[in-house]
Design a protein around this nucleic acid. Structure first.
Length: 445
RNA sequence: GCAGUCGUAGCUCAACUGGUUAGAGCACUCGCCUGUCACGCGAGAGGUUGCGGGUUCAAGUCCCGUCGACUGCGCCA
């Protein structure tokens, strides 16, 4: 007999079937035993009726056992139907149980309230929770929509290296290691330089890649290893071309999630983001304008700061929500002192670069800019930043041999997931998160 | 790295100003249960209160150190 999926059972009323699944819950009534069975497609109630030959094995089975069930699909007795549940009108009358894999005593029930630490220490088990499944189904769909949209726009996906010969940004701590003869190896903090080189090949490129930051931190919004969603496009006229592309992308992702993940958003009690009707580009303001606004409205003078504090980022998002009905807001024109060497200077706005951050529900989600594509100016900017152009000679070839005006952005997949779902800690949106204290460790016996 | 809060059973939490044998729910073991759906009922087992030191007649509770967690900050995505 061939295995069928639990979600297909409702079309098999009266038939004898085989399912293979996990035991979600067992409810032992003495002479009869109820189960909830779970597979990738859904759940269904099973019942072992009094006198059934399966009763003995049913008593032995525990939660999370992997089993094969031969049974008959019955309509539930009228008074026991559960209209609000999927498969609430049917049940599987269990005729035979085969235990495929036993589970040891469980540390806790899957639907227990858990501390974050416990949730992460028992990750292979806790990822089976309905809540965790919902989070990562949403993440799967974000990635799917990200790729789908960009491919439609002519972007090509490329694989960026994780092992690199130097640090791209100079702004963050880097993991170093010895292995290569005569060279220090580094784990990439960003695919930045590689996607710029790839603009010279395909004009429009994107990548989904793991990046590594050796900051000694453990916060609700940082990881030592995260997934960077990067895109880069050639022949742009201004950073606005990228901001428009990003706006369209996030609208596309949101629409895709509405279609595919409504149930998951409900489980997580999350709302879809507010997006102003018909927007071609999300609300935007220059950093200096934002700072003047904050200073005027809150009385705290932040106009001399080179950047926004997390508190002010949250304030601006509240403002954007009230004022523009938007959960997204672009902040542009950060000073060149705070931006990496490859960001193009904005001659019309003294001391700033053609860059932008996108804030989403209180958090910096994206950083992007138009790049300096003119070889001489790029080398000059490196020197100004205290970097040695010699060390970037590999990368600089792309600029020596002709590259169009271009720009792009990077966004953190885990941050995006966490903000979509209002998860307080980014680690909840990460399958196997790393921070200064956490790498998948052996649990002490 | 800094600051604040916290660390009690496998999990989630109690234990008033220091005061008898550190409790509960869930999970676990045994028994009962023919319509449950977080099934229910009864009994049982389960603890060096993170670790080390100190104060005290007496420490889960106060002090010092250490390890770990969470939140915030710095840095960033």
């Amino acid at each position: 007999m061939q295995r069928i999926m639990i979600s297909d059972l409702s079309s098999k009323k009266g038939e004898e079937v085989l399912i293979k699944c996990w035991v979600d819950v067992r409810r032992d009534q003495g002479k009869m035993v109820f189960f909830d069975f779970r597979d990738m497609s859904g759940k269904v109630q099973g019942v072992v009726l009094p006198g059934s030959s399966a009763i003995e094995i049913a008593k032995e089975v525990r939660d999370e056992f992997v089993v094969a069930i031969k049974g008959k699909v019955n309509e539930r007795p009228e008074r026991n139907r559960q209209a609000d549940k999927i498969n609430g009108d049917i049940e599987l009358e269990v005729l035979e149980i085969e235990i495929i894999t036993k589970a040891q005593d469980l540390p806790f029930a899957l639907d227990s309230e858990l501390n974050l630490d416990t949730l992460l220490d028992y990750r292979p088990y806790t990822l089976r929770r309905a809540r965790e499944q919902a989070i990562f189904k949403v993440q799967h769909n974000i990635l799917l929509a990200f790729r789908e949209f960009l491919i439609q726009k002519g972007f090509k996906e490329f694989r960026a290296p994780a092992i690199v010969g130097g640090d791209a940004e100079g702004g963050t701590e880097v993991f170093k290691f010895d292995y290569f003869y005569g060279h220090t190896g580094y784990l990439a903090t960003s695919p930045q330089l590689y996607k710029q080189m790839m603009v010279g090949v395909f004009e429009r490129v994107f990548t989904v890649t793991n990046v590594f930051r050796a900051e000694k931190h453990s916060t609700a919004r940082h990881l030592n290893e995260y997934t960077s969603l990067d895109l880069e496009m050639g022949f742009i006229d201004s950073p606005k071309d990228i901001m428009k592309m990003e706006t369209e992308l996030l609208i596309y992702v949101t629409a895709h999630l509405k279609k595919t993940c409504a149930e998951e958003f409900k489980i997580l009690e999350a709302n879809f983001p507010l997006i102003p009707e018909g927007s071609e580009i999300f609300p935007m303001m220059k950093l200096s304008e934002a700072q003047q606004l904050i200073t005027k409205e809150t009385g705290v003078d932040c106009t001399q700061e080179p950047d926004l504090s997390p508190e002010h980022e949250r304030w601006l998002c509240e403002y954007s929500k009230k004022e523009f009905n938007s959960d997204f807001i672009f902040i542009t024109n950060y000073p060149r002192t705070k931006r990496p060497f490859y960001a193009m200077d904005d001659e019309e706005n003294d001391g700033t670069t053609k860059c932008f951050d996108l804030l989403f529900r209180g958090l910096e989600l994206i950083s992007g800019n138009q790049r300096e594509h003119r070889y001489d100016l790029l080398v000059e900017k490196m020197k100004w930043k205290g970097l040695d152009p010699e060390k970037f000679s590999f990368y600089l070839q792309a600029f020596k041999y002709g590259i169009p005006p271009h720009g792009g952005l990077g966004m953190g997949l885990e941050r995006l997931t966490a903000r979509f779902l209002n998860l307080p800690n980014i680690k909840e949106a990460t399958l196997f998160p790393r921070d200064i204290n956490r790498i998948d460790k052996l649990l002490s016996e």
